[in-house]
Design a protein around this nucleic acid. Structure first.
Length: 569
RNA sequence: CGGGGUGUAGCUCAGCUUGGUAGAGCGUUUGGUUCGGGACCAAAAGGUCGCAGGUUCAAGUCCUGUCACCCCGACCA
């Protein structure tokens, strides 16, 4: 491709709309342009990267035996009503009416549509298992789209759906997708990790996420330093302390703590460790009641764990000030456990405390020397908190570490969540009708591009992993207009390399060397070939990998073979 | 949806406090000088100052409303 014919517009300055690095670089390099919040156009250069990723995904899905199809983006409401998600999915599902006043949605995912296909097309167990996938535009009306294509409203997803007669087959299909995903992310050149996850709005029992490790990642992921345990922070299990609770020694005492609404302030006033205090959070129980959730002062509540407890409303909602007043007689900040009437869930580590501090249910007052059983009865033990670095791993080996990740893939064993309400069944060997079991598997194709940049860049620009680079080689002639020899050699090289199947971006613009170098580095093409009078004098060309800090010279006549070697290695 | 912020040339921003002929840098076009790390000189094109209403002799600037976008929190590939 001749750069003179490729209308890219690189920018020296960072557009104000971009906060994260990948977004800034994608705009500066001319990969994408914003149309509206969460909606992006992919310019030719960006599209090349996207297509590279798609090709890898497609090859590995095909290799795993999945069958590609395409389903409509616009879907009738009836299907969503049938699965129950018309009411469950919430405002992220964009709904609209057509001219006949019929309800439709813009597909955020395709479980309903694929299940509808399968129940019509498949009649016999002999046709199972089967896995259908597509690479297609999705729309989710995100509350807050951000970070460019990382969390866009419209994005490209590879979504796959497998159907099975029994659990063993579902597990085998799931495992096959796990392996395919591992190959896909390995091939794209990303550093990633598979972690245990919550299944969220998609539903089902077993699920894992694939995260690209990057400091800018939105998710916290947790892993053991001694084995392969890894989980999203949302679901990472906090083990109960191994030490038994010490005996009560102090008497219950009420102390004045003016203005101490936070654990930090309380600990400062009373000169105690936050770990000796407990936080009591009053949340909505969903049935008009409220529930108290208790965690140790130095711990944070894990909302996902909490909202799965019986009698707790999901999504988790903190009780209003009025509700708190009614249930405890005081305001948030002074809520305590002694004499509390509502249902109490206490985190294991809070339950292991003796002689601890909590609110007195009275403004500007706290209690010290509080003890379970003696002063507070009826609390239910639960895992309520977010794990912290240094906690023992639930796997039994090692301690937990926490890193940031970008979720690029998610695989689920859905079971019959969709096939049962939508009546997707086949006849088994004995002629009995069997409801299908289902798995689903997503990859954020557009997100992979952003994640790749987050993981591979320097102060000058992008450094593409070769498998997804828009071009393999950038050919940079210096002072083209001045030197007939440079022009002649460059033109010939471009023809020769292109004919050899190498993807060359040829910077044939009449620009100064500094401009060309700066653009080459911003664009991040992995291999750079410089043609200049200086080395041509000795019959040489200059080569430099985007990661290297210095160029090497080699005989101009060997260009094709030299490059092939570099591309292979 | 709650909290914070910004809308002025393609991009980055100044001008607004104190109302009086709309600016700079980058980019673009033309000519010239340059030419191995984002050159220089000269000329030029390019703006309903987000939109609507109001105050005023006069509004980019003051007032009211509205829209869009960005950032922080709860959701997700």
């Amino acid at each position: 491709m001749r750069l003179s014919r490729y209308p890219i517009n690189t920018m020296k300055e960072t557009p104000a709309e971009a906060e994260v690095l990948s977004h800034q670089l994608m705009l500066r390099a001319g990969l994408i342009r914003r149309l509206a919040a969460g909606l992006y156009s992919w310019l030719p250069l960006g599209l090349r990267v996207l297509q590279k990723v798609e090709r890898i995904v497609r090859e590995e899905m095909n290799r795993a035996g999945a069958l590609e199809l395409v389903m409509p983006v616009v879907q009738p409401a009836e299907l969503w009503q049938e699965s129950g998600r018309w009411s469950e999915y919430g405002p992220e599902l964009l709904r609209f009416k057509d001219r006949h006043e019929r309800d439709f949605v813009l597909g955020p995912t395709h479980e309903e549509v694929v299940t509808d296909i399968v129940r019509r097309e498949l009649q016999s167990y002999r046709q199972l298992p089967v896995n259908f996938y597509q690479i297609q535009t999705k729309f989710r009306d995100e509350v807050r789209p951000r970070f460019g294509v990382m969390r866009a409203r419209e994005f490209i997803m590879k979504d796959a759906y497998s159907f099975h007669l029994d659990a063993a087959s579902l597990q085998a299909g799931y495992r096959a997708m796990y392996d395919a995903y591992t190959r896909i992310f390995t091939r794209t050149g990303l550093t990633f990790r598979a972690v245990r996850a919550d299944s969220g709005a998609i539903g089902g029992d077993v699920s894992q996420e694939f995260h690209v490790l990057a400091d800018s990642g939105e998710d916290a992921i947790v892993f053991s330093d001694a084995d392969d345990y890894a989980a999203n922070l949302e679901v990472a299990v906090a083990l109960p302390p191994s030490q038994p609770r010490p005996a009560a020694r102090e008497p219950l005492r009420k102390v004045a703590t003016p203005g101490a609404r936070t654990i930090a302030e309380l600990a400062r006033q009373l000169q105690v460790e936050p770990a000796r205090c407990v936080k009591t959070l009053i949340v909505d129980g969903g049935d008009g009641e409220v529930v108290a959730l208790v965690v140790r002062g130095d711990h944070e509540l894990n909302a996902l764990k909490a909202q799965k407890l019986p009698g707790v409303a999901a999504p988790l909602t903190l009780a209003s000030a009025a509700q708190v007043q009614q249930a405890t007689g005081t305001e948030p900040g002074y809520v305590g456990l002694v004499g509390l009437k509502c249902r109490i869930y206490a985190d294991h580590s809070a339950l292991a405390l003796a002689d601890f501090v909590c609110g007195a249910n009275e403004k500007d007052q706290h209690l010290t020397g509080v003890n379970w059983e003696r002063d507070v009865q009826g609390a239910t033990a639960a895992d309520l908190r977010k794990v912290v670095e240094g906690d023992p791993s639930p796997s039994g080996k090692g301690v937990l570490k926490i890193a940031r990740g970008i979720e690029v893939g998610h695989i689920f064993q859905l079971g019959d969540k969709y096939s049962r309400p939508m009546k997707a069944a086949v006849l088994d060997e004995a002629g009995r009708e069997v409801t299908l079991l289902m798995g689903c598997y997503g990859i954020g194709v557009t997100r992979i591009v952003a994640a790749a940049i987050e993981q591979n860049h320097d102060e000058r620009g992008i450094i593409w992993p070769q498998p997804i680079a828009p071009f393999q080689v950038i050919l940079v002639p210096l002072n083209l207009h001045k030197s007939a020899r440079v022009r002649e050699v460059s033109e010939r090289l471009y023809e020769e390399l292109t004919a050899a199947g190498i993807e060359v971006l040829y910077d044939d613009r009449d620009a100064r060397p500094g401009v060309k170098f700066a653009d080459a580095e911003l664009l991040g093409v992995p291999h750079r070939l410089v043609v200049g009078e200086r080395s041509l004098e000795a019959g040489k060309l200059e080569y430099r990998h985007r990661r290297d800090s210095a160029s090497i010279e080699f005989p101009a006549a060997d260009a094709r073979d030299f490059l092939r070697q570099r591309l292979a290695g």
